[in-house]
Simulated assay, not measured.
Amino acid sequence: MSNGADEPEEDSESESVGPFGLARAFQPLTDYYRSIFADLFQPVIQTYEPMSHIGEMISKRLVEASGVDAMLRETFEPLREHFREYWRDVFEGFGSLKERIYPPNLHDATPSVEEFEQLLLEEGIPLMWVPGPKVVRALLDVPDAVERRRIIGRRWKGIVNHCEAVIEDVDHPGLLEYRGFAIDCVAALRDGHNNPAQALAANLLDSLMQAHFSQSERAKLTSHRLGKFDLNDHGIRVALTFAPVWYAHAEYWPKNGDPIPRVFGRHPSAHGVSRSQYSRINAVYGLMLVTSVLKFFDVELAR
C-alpha cells in the first residue's frame, strides 16, 4: 500500500567530546593560540614598526649601519620558519579533531554553528551520519527551509541508500534487533509503502530512546516544556544528534484542537494519522532520524 506524496521526485546520484559545548568548542583554543602568538611577536612588532615609517634616507641608512635591520631579519626569519611548521601542525591537529568529532558525511561540508542551529533546531533535519555529503552540501547551499525540504523530497532515493549503508554498518550486539527494524523501514520506503515506513520509524525512534535513556534524560532531550534545546548544554555529538530529535517531539494535543503538522513529528505520527502528517518525505525524515540515533548508540555504547 502506498500513499500519495505532493513532494517532487527525482532519482539521486546513484566518544562524547567535552568539556565545551558546541558554540564554544573551539573558541578557548583559538583565543589561547592567538594570545601566545601576540605575546611572542609583540617585541618584534614594537621594534620594527616605528622603523618601517622612517621616511628619510639618512635615517634608513643609520638603521642599516647600526646593524639593527640585519639583526631583525636574522631574528625574525627563524621565528617565521618555526611558526610556519608550528601552525601547520596546529591546523593538522584541528583537521584530526574535526574527523574525530564529526562523522564522515560532515568532513567536506561542515556547517557553521549558525547553520547547525538553523537546520537541526529550526527545521529538524538530521545531519549526523546522514544524509550523504553531497546532500549536506546541497542543503547548505539553498536559502531557506522550503528549498531544503524540496531537496530531501527530490533526493529521497539517494538518502535512503545512504541510510541503508549506515544502518548496515551498525554492529553493536545490543543494537542488532533495532538494526533489523531500521532495514525494514528502508525496504518499505523502496517498495512505496510510505505509511508503514513512517509509523515504524517513529516507533523505532521511541524504542531506542526508551531503551537507552532514563526518563529524566529523555525529558532533557525531547521535552519542549523545558524550553528550547540548547546546543551548549550537551556534548557535541549528543547535541548534534538529538537536536532534531527534540524538534520531532514538538507538542501536539488533539484534545486542544491543535492542527496536524505537515512536518514529521513523533506525536502526530502516533496520534494524528492523516494525509497531512503521513507522506513519503516525512517517512524519509523519520528514517534519517532513526539512522542517526542508531549510529550514535553504535559509536557511543560500551562493548
Rank of each mutant, 00 (worst) to 15 (best):
M1P: 07
A5C: 09
E13A: 11
E15K: 14
R24T: 08
A25F: 15
Q27C: 04
S35M: 15
A38D: 12
F41E: 01
T47A: 15
E49D: 11
P50E: 08
H53Q: 05
I54Q: 11
I58D: 03
A65K: 13
V68A: 10
F76Q: 10
E77M: 14
E81C: 12
E85M: 13
W87G: 04
F94K: 13
F94Q: 13
S96F: 11
D108E: 10
E115K: 09
L119D: 00
L120E: 00
L120K: 00
E122V: 03
E122M: 08
E123K: 01
G124A: 03
G132I: 01
P143C: 03
P143L: 02
E147Q: 11
R150K: 12
I151Q: 02
R154E: 14
R155A: 07
W156E: 09
K157F: 03
N161A: 08
N161L: 07
A165L: 02
A165M: 04
D171M: 06
D171F: 09
P173A: 09
C185L: 02
A187E: 13
A188S: 10
D191Q: 14
N195G: 12
A202D: 08
L205M: 14
S207K: 06
S214Y: 10
G235C: 04
A250D: 01
E251W: 06
Y252I: 03
G257F: 03
P259S: 05
P261Q: 05
H271L: 05
Y278D: 09
I281A: 05
L287V: 06
V293T: 10
K295L: 01
L301I: 10
